[in-house]
Nucleic acid binder design. Structure first.
Length: 675
DNA sequence: GAGCACTGC
């Protein structure tokens, strides 16, 4: 590292030294020296994310002045749950250390590696470190790993916990720092028995918490009234209201605006909002007009808005839930946890003392869960199990996780992977499974891609996969534009299904040279399309690594779309529904079949007897979304082991399946006689 | 005939 620093360096250094975490620098370094694992609890504003990794780096460089593994430099890695955070924090730290980003300080996130052979401190997403661990389970280049925001308990962070717990045993020279914003620390301390804990206070202004006297029946009504009340009786200061979803937010914005008019500036905030609209949130307010931001959970952790003095918290958010029996993931409006409520309240005290209006009673608050359930307890684990297998975990039940998932969920995941050919009878990873694990996709999709050359359509399947991996590309404005949007969409529609429609959109986007105006005119989300192109490129790179053929059927051939539909089924054969005589679709499964409805966004002009679907969503009804027509006999051709009639309970679909099986047997016998 | 909390590889 260079010896002379710029004036700016010393200027920033003085500011850094005022951060609360600096008071604990010596204590931290001493503890790190004497222990393999250190737990640090630092509240918002303590400076832990930027400073601790620098402290660690200083120690590593002092103790290992020259050598690293294979002549390379030792690395300090710091994980973040979000890519924006990894990028922005590393930029900040590079500035503090007076170096160019990508040199001594860098970051690695999906689609972007801004690090080099010079890099000694690297910020990366938790998912990225997990990927690195797949290639090198001992994480040989790292000397210290810092797991930041551990309290968020993302799936990737939880897996890293389990993995590092093993790695630390085989690599006594590797150290781990766990950083958490809340004191769920006892949970971590139980997990890593006897680990020292350092507590650093945050720097937030006091936030007064107000509860309602009675529980509120209608939280929207209550939220709107509270905003009006704040506006009429509280001193200047911006307001942040937490709601659960896009429609609710847009609706509430309109209602507030109609009541308060020009006196306030009401703005919505959610992830699918265009970046330009999101940016508006950060425009400074004029003194005369109060800013009112109505937001989803995105403002709880991902985005920080300065100048918020009042927070309105109805106490709900949409949360993902997984039911292993029906294999359905659903988004459900649910009460938040105490930790979440406290995090929301903290948003009021970033620039001056604030107030948080909780639209529930103090008693209700005390009845809330302390922490939000870890993601691993609320997810389909097929992909997780595949990752663990790839990391060399032999017995999943013995893998030490902070919160072990339900046995049902685990069993379901193993079962799915077995049917996909990723695991053998003894639960070992197969060659196919190994390849599947390299794709940053769900197992069905990875399988579909791997076998697509057999249907001579890997190019098309890659495009469809990319489209399925990004947010919905169809824009549908409320009110006026709706009809025009639907008409534009119908231009892309393929009568046999939504997957093929997505393919049409992708092809059209490329034909129009990825033109943004073309997207605008056709009600297509440009950002989604660009990111699909990006995803596809990444998938192509993985394909070439495994030398999987890139090929297309003849576009003018009658079988062009047939091949693609067959390839879809080769991955998603466990997600098939059959049209019953009642006119309803029934999922066709070994157990727990469900009545489902085609999602109204589908582009089919008729109801085919059999469909393959991309996802099952539980909202106002049971919907299957993104569906494509398939032939019943393909089930027997493409997944004969899974579609043995004996595996299924009696049903209309089973009788049809039996007929197909019989026909297949007969044709096989006939062909035997010929030879 | 309806919706899309949020991340991430």
């Amino acid at each position: 590292m260079k010896k002379t620093y710029s004036g700016r360096y010393f200027e920033i250094l003085e500011k850094r030294k005022n951060l609360p975490v600096w008071v604990h620098k010596e204590e931290f370094l001493k503890t790190l020296k004497e222990n393999q694992i250190v737990l640090l609890v630092g509240e918002t504003g303590s400076g832990k994310t930027t400073q601790i990794p620098q402290f660690v780096l200083e120690a590593v460089l002092n103790e290992n002045p020259s050598s690293g593994p294979k002549g390379k430099k030792w690395l300090v890695g710091c994980t973040q749950p979000r890519r924006v955070a990894a990028m922005s924090v590393s930029r900040r730290v590079a500035e503090e250390m007076d170096v160019e980003i990508g040199d001594e300080v860098g970051y690695t996130v999906r689609f972007e590696d801004c690090s080099s052979s010079k890099t000694v401190l690297k910020y990366l997403t938790d998912g990225m470190l997990l990927r690195e661990a797949m290639a090198d389970p001992l994480l040989g280049r790292y000397k210290v790993i810092v797991l930041d925001e551990a309290h968020e308990r993302t799936l990737a962070t939880d897996l890293l916990f389990g993995l590092l717990k093993q790695t630390l045993v085989s690599r006594p020279d590797l150290k781990l720092v766990v950083m958490s914003a809340t004191l769920e620390a006892d949970k971590f301390q139980n997990y890593f028995t006897g680990v020292p804990l350092i507590k650093v206070p945050g720097r937030l202004y006091p936030v007064e918490i107000l509860y309602t006297r009675e529980p509120q029946r209608d939280y929207l009504e209550a939220a709107i009234n509270t905003v009006i009340q704040i506006h009429e009786s509280e001193p200047p200061g911006d307001v942040l209201v937490f709601l659960t979803g896009e429609e609710e937010i847009e609706d509430t914005c309109r209602r507030i605006a109609s009541k308060l008019g020009d006196q306030v500036n009401v703005m919505p905030l959610y992830s699918t909002l265009s970046p330009a609209m999101q940016q508006k949130i950060f425009d400074p307010t004029t003194d005369a007009v109060r800013k009112i931001v109505v937001s989803t959970n995105i403002a709880e952790t991902s985005l920080t808005i300065d100048g918020i003095v009042y927070v309105v918290d109805p106490g709900f958010s949409k949360q993902k839930l997984y039911h292993p029996n029906t294999r359905v993931e659903s988004l459900l409006v649910s009460p938040i946890s105490q930790a979440s409520a406290d995090q929301r309240a903290g948003r009021a005290g970033r620039t001056q003392p604030g107030k948080c209006f909780r639209l529930y009673t103090e008693k209700s608050f005390k009845e809330l869960e302390k922490q939000t359930y870890a993601e691993i307890l609320r997810s389909n684990l097929a992909n997780t199990v595949l990752t663990l297998k790839r990391l060399g975990v032999e017995n999943l039940l013995h893998f030490d996780l902070i919160d072990p998932p339900a046995p049902d969920t685990l069993a379901r995941a193993l079962d799915d992977l077995y049917h996909l050919g990723a695991l053998d009878d003894e639960c070992n990873l197969t060659k196919t499974g190994e390849m599947m694990s390299e794709f940053p996709l769900d197992p069905q999709m990875a399988k579909m891609i791997i076998v697509s050359p057999q249907f001579n359509c890997s190019n098309e399947i890659l495009s469809v996969s990319a489209m399925l991996s990004v947010p919905n590309c169809f824009i549908r404005p409320r009110g006026e534009g709706q009809k025009a949007a639907d008409k534009a969409k119908s231009m892309f529609s393929h009568i046999d299904g939504d997957h093929l429609t997505l393919l049409n959109v992708f092809h059209a986007f490329l034909q129009h040279n990825q033109n943004q105006d073309w997207c605008y005119e056709n009600f297509i989300n440009y950002r989604a399309m660009k990111s699909a192109v990006n995803v596809r490129e990444q998938l192509v790179r993985i394909m070439s690594r495994f030398q999987i053929k890139l090929c297309s059927p003849d576009f003018n051939s009658r079988d062009y779309y047939v091949n693609i539909r067959k390839a879809l089924l080769a991955g998603y054969f466990m997600q098939v529904a059959h049209l019953e005589r009642t006119g309803n679709y029934l999922t066709f499964r070994d157990k727990d079949d469900q009545v489902v409805h085609l999602h109204p966004s589908n582009c089919l002009e008729y109801k085919p007897e059999w469909v393959v679907y991309n996802e099952y969503v539980l909202t106002s009804r049971n919907f299957i979304r993104t569906v494509t027509y398939i032939q019943g006999e393909w089930l027997v051709d493409i997944a004969p082991d899974y579609y043995k009639p004996a595996n299924f309970p009696n049903s209309e679909a089973k009788r049809v399946l039996q007929r197909h099986c019989k026909k297949r047997r007969l044709s096989e016998e006939r062909s035997c006689k010929i030879f």
